[in-house]
Computed example of a mutant assay.
Amino acid sequence: MIGIICAMEEELQAVLAHVKEEKQVRTGTTRLHYGTLNGQAIVACLSGVGKVNAAMAATIVCMEPAVDLVMNVGVAGGLRSGQHVCDLVISDALVQADFDSSPLDGEEGIGLRFPVRPELVRKASAIARQLDIPYHVGTIATQDLFMARPEDFAKLMDRFPQSACAEMEGGAVAQVAIAFEKPVLVLRTLSDVVHHADNPMEFSKFAALASRQAADVIAAWCAQA
């Protein structure tokens, strides 16, 4: 069973449009949708914004014994000059970039890092090529921060220059999934790129497109499971 955690309601509904739903279960404020997608058993839910919300949703999903893969989809800000709005970023690692215990632990206390299994990266990359979606593979940086100031970007890239995009949930999902000994894959669609002077698409239009794209990737993934 694949556990699918969506950051936005639009993304959840786009995934559910492909799902033959069997039941809904509510745990706390989290609504879990159980069913099948292209013959693959799934459970999908909405996390909401931020690391605490993401960790709560991931914990609930991971407590389902049948879940053997956790996928997290959402949007992110691109950090590389060759990126464009609506490009897909496939995680090969996650880092909680705002974790900092360096006064006690030195350099080892800056950031919490979580790996992604190479076979998951290869499969996601193949699906992106199959669907003709421009994609990038790299580290996804998670912070409880919406980066809007040049100094935020400078600090992140000074500490984690390998980062491909920045967002607010993926690192928390990865930490929980790995604690439950479940593989994790985080996919992000770029809503903006720091090196570009403007965002060429209104967010409302972008959100709908990003949601459909994420759902298409998941549907293709389940078809090949």
Rank of each mutant, 00 (worst) to 15 (best):
D98W: 13
S47V: 02
R129Q: 10
E119I: 09
S91Y: 04
T36F: 10
Q24P: 00
V121D: 02
S47H: 07
L16P: 07
A41P: 04
L12Q: 04
R129Y: 02
Q24E: 08
G111V: 14
A126W: 06
A41H: 12
Q40H: 15
L12K: 01
G109C: 13
G50A: 08
T27C: 14
L37F: 10
L112R: 15
K23R: 05
G109T: 12
E64N: 11
G77W: 00
I127H: 02
V25L: 06
G77R: 06
C86V: 03
V15A: 08
S101K: 10
Y34M: 05
K20F: 10
L69N: 13
Q83G: 09
V67H: 02
N38Y: 12
G35S: 10
G111I: 14
G50I: 03
T27V: 15
A44C: 09
Q40W: 12
L32Q: 10
E107W: 12
L94T: 05
A76R: 00
V95G: 01
H18V: 09
G111Q: 07
P115F: 10
V73G: 01
D105A: 15
K23H: 09
H33Q: 04
V43D: 00
L112A: 13
V49A: 13
K51R: 11
L12C: 06
V67G: 02
Q96C: 13
K123A: 12
V43H: 00
E22V: 01
N38H: 15
T59W: 01
N72V: 13
A76L: 09
Q13Y: 12
G106D: 11
A124R: 01
E108K: 15
